[in-house]
Design a protein around this nucleic acid. Structure first.
Lengths: 329, 329
DNA sequence: TCACGATCCGACAACGATGACGCTGCTCGC
DNA sequence: GCGAGCAGCGTCATCGTTGTCGGATCGTGA
């Protein structure tokens, strides 16, 4: 900037005014400065600019997800990014692998970089840190899951209700031995889904058989293994409810070929679910809408909206494709 | 920081030293300062810190991909992010939708934020801007595709060769009417793949039938439509080569049910390709390795490695699963 | 001719932090 | 008893930019 000022024969302040398009600079001077800018390839240092600017804002938000490689979070992230782009904001992204320690590090690093707000898919741990950040005025929005004990804007789906309906669907097809295939039980979404499973059974007077419940399935392979074990029981389940897309696919692996006569309903839709030998009945949620909504909530806070936290619950869609409509043998 | 200094009864510089873990502060003073820090919830402003620091570095890199919601780029991004995390770097991410204008905006914005380096999946346009950035000392690595006319480190796969082998595989199964289903032709990877297709045909003395070539398929639906049209020709193709995962899936849609006797080989592996009614033969590439390698190249430059640009070509894997091994009628 | 507002532009301080250097005491050796 | 050396800490300048204020210049109308 100094070089530009020198080259154009003006002061730093005038360069600043030209670069920012402020009024009060004559067309001739503007032209001289602009020429110097392009000749020297000058670019403003936004960090320094934000440091001094009146509106203490960096036009950057932070996004913290479980795993960016997971299509669900990737889609959510893309929606956040688009919303940010429309407003001229940049996005810092990080995955946590559901590790509270990594979440902590990342949130601190983002906050030290002076992000204007955070969208977080909270890990299962405690959130005193997020609480502290909010107390210091950092806008925070939780996406996909609420953070335990944190009064923040939240965007989730009706996990429990959707699961209850899905399991009820299986019960209506006269299934009674319905297995539950769950991911880590300490994640909120999965607690909710399991609760929905329990409620559906209870509502139909079916006693929960602990032998048919598997938690903590962290991969496609683990899910396949669990299903293989379940199917080799003396009284195998006649239907499966799987609590996310990865587990649904693993369950299909575990059923093997030829496909036994077992009903299957999964949480999360996934590509090609409709093209498999037995098209899969699913509960579908829309990560793009979750991300977009979270971003809108965040920006409303950044723009100064003051009110008690809002909780947006998005509806899921039940899509019957065949695998969930198989009656028991 | 001023408040902390006041509370601890020391100068700003001492607070700075304690916060940075510099030596030369007595244990008592350190304790007093640390107490004040935690009592006031003080966090250093990294942007201001980077402004003054000797090593003019922000410990932030920029990642510019085509579409973050695409699992391929999401996986690539995750690998970049992990490499960055291991080194204590943060990642700014943006999608371009293959729009050169948006790419330009994003690169400028990242550079104005003083990122220490850029990993870019270049759009099809010209790259004078990237060139200018590199000339000013910004380390740049191209991932997935090279940028036309840009001498930068590059990580790609053997697109042309892999396609030649895939099409040769079909030719070896006595196919002669092999359709090419292509994405936008101005993207480098797709030009390479089409070139590989042409080379394989030529090597086998098969004349290219322009009626069997479709470029510019941008979605699953468009691919399905194109395949439906191809199959209704008087002399329909006996085999299809599809140039990416999206198009492969669209092609399967377009073939309809029951599946006609048409061979299919696709570029890119995708989840469940092995579980479809007719398991799909594919050329598989590994986006995580592409991203990880790109990040390593970038950090070597950031660490001061000086040498002519390197071009890393990763191998693809041909996976025969059945759909590519069907002979012509 | 002169007062006066408008326009254009520069000087100075400041944003939050660190680099360089210098000032205090204290210890130690001779 | 005195200077050297060092640990501990503060002062000042500075990173690149912008907010504030005021000075210079000009045209205009009385």
């Amino acid at each position: 900037m100094k070089d530009v000022a020198l080259a154009a024969g003006v002061s730093l302040m005038t360069v600043s005014r030209v670069v920012n398009g402020d009024r009060g600079v004559s067309p001739q001077t503007t032209a001289r400065v602009e020429q110097a800018v392009s000749r020297l390839g000058y670019q403003r240092n936004d960090n320094a600019s934000h440091l001094r600017r009146k509106a203490q804002t960096t036009r950057t938000i932070g996004l913290v997800v479980d795993d960016l490689a997971n299509p669900f979070y990737a889609t959510l992230a893309r929606a956040v990014e688009d919303e940010a782009y429309r407003r001229g904001y940049l996005v810092l992204v990080s995955s946590t692998n559901d590790d509270p320690r990594r979440e902590r590090e990342v949130v601190l690093a983002f906050s030290a970089r002076q992000v204007d707000g955070l969208i977080v898919v909270p890990t299962a741990g405690s959130h005193s840190l997020l609480k502290a950040q909010m107390a210091q005025g950092m806008p925070v929005v939780c996406a996909d899951r609420p953070a335990r004990g944190l009064d923040a804007d939240t965007v989730t789906v009706d996990n429990r209700d959707a699961t209850r309906k899905a399991v009820t669907h299986l019960l209506a097809h006269r299934h009674r031995r319905i297995a539950y295939l769950g991911d880590q039980r300490d994640i909120w979404t999965l607690r909710e889904r399991f609760a929905g499973y329990q409620e559906a059974l209870r509502a139909h007077g079916v006693e929960l058989d602990p032998g048919l419940v598997r938690h903590g399935l962290r991969s496609r392979a683990e899910a396949a293994q669990a299903v293989a074990e379940l199917m080799s029981r003396q009284a195998p389940p006649t239907a499966l409810f799987s609590s996310n897309d990865l587990i649904t696919v693993g369950a299909i692996d575990g059923l093997g070929a030829p496909l036994p006569r077992v009903a299957l309903v999964g949480f999360d839709d996934f590509p090609l679910a409709d093209r498999l030998p037995r098209p899969v009945t699913v509960v579908s949620q829309d990560p793009a809408t979750i991300g977009g909504t979270a971003a809108q909530l965040l920006f409303s806070r950044i723009d100064g909206y003051q009110a008690p936290p809002r909780s947006v619950v998005l509806m899921t869609r039940f899509i019957a494709r065949g695998s969930g409509e198989i009656p028991p043998p």
